[in-house]
Amino acid sequence: MKIRTAALMFILLVSGCNADQRSPLESSFYNGAGDKIGTATLKEMPEGVQVKVKVEGLDPGPHAIHVHEFSKCKGPDFISAGNHFNPDSKQHGLMNAEGAHAGDLPNIEADSSGMAQAELMLSDATLKDSQKSLLRKEGTSLVIHSGVDDGLTQPAGNSGERIACAKITLDADQNETSDPTEPMEKQKKSK
């Protein structure tokens, strides 16, 4: 009995460590020219995956943001990221009665200076091992579009071109040392 209890405790400890290594997870957004324009921080929460976005250099106004199926962010068009993350084969759109994709998110709003900050929730995704994991296979990506997602139109809400991409992988930012949206003094100290 003691051996079974010890084995169960070990399994729980190891699986808890696995979740700790995956959350929070930080990644950088790059534009089509390859410039770092911001960050995304993903955190496992009881209600899903929290996504904190901080980017600059966008046109003022609303922009669609979605999780895409591959962790490939090859500019300038980011087509390499594939389609929306959609493990349940649903229709696109947060307002669609037959949707939404697991990777559909509310629009983000860039202010007059082109800065956008948002805290979003992916309620149908996880960072843990499962079919709905954003880290399954080689991972996924977050893609920002040039326009607004209308919440209904197939396959991507009529949201325009893909203008920025961030890989969602365990090692996405291993070599990153600065955030372009922070004051220059702070960036210099981190190098």
Rank of each mutant, 00 (worst) to 15 (best):
I3P: 04
A6I: 08
L8D: 14
M9K: 12
I11F: 13
L12R: 06
L12V: 03
G16V: 02
A19F: 08
D20L: 15
Q21G: 03
P24I: 00
P24M: 04
E26P: 04
S27C: 12
F29P: 06
Y30A: 10
N31D: 15
G34I: 07
T39M: 14
A40W: 02
E44N: 07
Q50T: 12
L58Y: 03
P60K: 03
G61N: 01
P62Y: 10
A64M: 00
A64N: 09
H68Y: 08
E69W: 01
F70L: 15
F70Q: 12
K72R: 09
F78P: 01
I79G: 07
N83E: 13
H84F: 01
H84L: 06
Q91W: 11
E98C: 00
A100Q: 00
D104L: 06
L105C: 01
N107S: 08
E109V: 05
D111L: 05
G114F: 02
E119F: 06
S123P: 09
D124S: 15
T126F: 03
K128S: 02
L135A: 12
K137E: 12
K137T: 13
E138M: 08
L142D: 04
D149H: 07
D149R: 10
D150P: 10
G151Y: 02
T153W: 02
Q154D: 14
R162F: 13
C165G: 05
T169K: 01
D171M: 07
D173T: 15
N175W: 11
T177N: 04
E182A: 11
P183I: 10
P183G: 04
E185Y: 02
K186E: 13
